[in-house]
Design a protein around this nucleic acid. Structure first.
Lengths: 213, 213
DNA sequence: TAGATTGTTAATCGATTAACAATC
DNA sequence: TAGATTGTTAATCGATTAACAATC
């Protein structure tokens, strides 16, 4: 219920997972669930679920548990699913194209309103009804809009300059797909995907398991 | 130096980041670095760096610090960069194509040896000199090989069945790009990417920052 | 009301940081 | 040798888990 207590990033990162599980329960027409039952499905403790949820409010009811639909909606609200985030993709190569086709981002409140590249062969083509625009016109494009998030799918070397450019123009959040930690002189939120880091951790774990056998 | 002490996942997850920073230092022709200086570059404590590294061995030298190249190589070895992981991509849609073009996975020890799909329009085409094969022939393909990692880039609904199939055929690790937690009755290592979770955390952080202003 | 299950406080655990003796 | 910096132990901090009174 503490509306202004600092909520740890560990808790925030679990919210999308709760949201997914609640969505599954909804699809299964399950209307109520206790922290204990949810904990068994998710492989975490009931205590952690109750602690996490109580960072944001008392969503449950003693003796009953949680109403699946209303908890789903509450977590959706916390995550901003019902807000609208204006999103642009910078870089329309394979990764940019892949992201443009992730239609389920829509359902999570992310609205793709522009795709940019510098490659003349790509500019003018359409991805999901959105024309790829010249990145050199991005400042004009953004002048009458608020862009919440730029998905950066540009080549490694270009990433810092592109990141600086879009941050300087007022984009609030960067979703970085390049294997680097961006250092930006602007007040912008950066979330890194770092696919190769993830793959290397998988490699380590596969190797580790073999060592033990 | 403790070769068999359980190393926490938090430490493992930091290794690729150390590896990246050391690679950058090498490129800058910096030959030695102290934990203190590295800590300033990385924005973590020197204590943490020394603790982390000492999980695997005493790579430094008192009064000197760490030799960049040898530390880079040590961490590379720990992560398996010098091993060869045989990798296949399952699903040659946008994401599969994007991953097939991430040539820097090669440098990290991941060797792409096969791409599979079920779409007749894709089967036979080539991505980076590798012909897309019919997923129905995957069991034949794997029969005389060891596959360390399957990158799963198939549609959401197909992911569980494909994951089960490849795990049953002896693939050791799954890199899962679908927004779900796979439950598999086989002893296989799963690493999730969960792009939409990452994006939702970014959305939350952007929203949170605005609330504070 | 009795039973169930939450919200919340207290205890535990693990990870991070600090301190310093060892040593290059 | 003196200075620097590691490797490692001890202290702190934060996150997770347990316990239980509140209450539906």
């Amino acid at each position: 219920m503490n509306s202004d207590k600092k909520i740890s990033i560990a808790v925030i990162k679990r919210l999308p997972r709760y949201y997914r599980y609640l969505s599954d329960l909804l699809k299964m027409d399950i209307t109520r669930i206790s922290s204990k039952e949810l904990s068994q499905r998710m492989g975490i403790t009931a205590s952690q679920i109750r602690q996490d949820l109580n960072c944001f409010g008392g969503f449950g009811q003693q003796g009953y548990g949680y109403n699946v639909e209303s908890l789903y909606n509450e977590i959706g609200n916390i995550l901003g699913v019902n807000d609208k985030f204006n999103v642009v993709i910078i870089g329309a190569g394979n990764m940019g194209q892949a992201l443009s086709n992730y239609t389920n981002f829509d359902k999570r409140g992310f609205k793709l309103i522009g795709i940019f590249d510098t490659n003349p062969e790509l500019i003018g083509k359409k991805l999901r009804d959105i024309e790829i625009m010249d990145f050199n016109t991005f400042d004009k494009f953004i002048s009458d809009k608020t862009i919440d998030i730029a998905m950066l799918c540009v080549p490694y070397e270009k990433t810092p300059s592109v990141a600086n450019k879009v941050a300087s123009l007022g984009v609030k959040g960067l979703w970085n797909f390049s294997p680097m930690d961006l250092e930006i002189p602007y007040d912008v939120i950066i979330e890194n995907v770092h696919l190769s880091d993830s793959l290397m951790v998988l490699g380590y774990r596969v190797k580790e398991k073999q060592r033990k056998m």
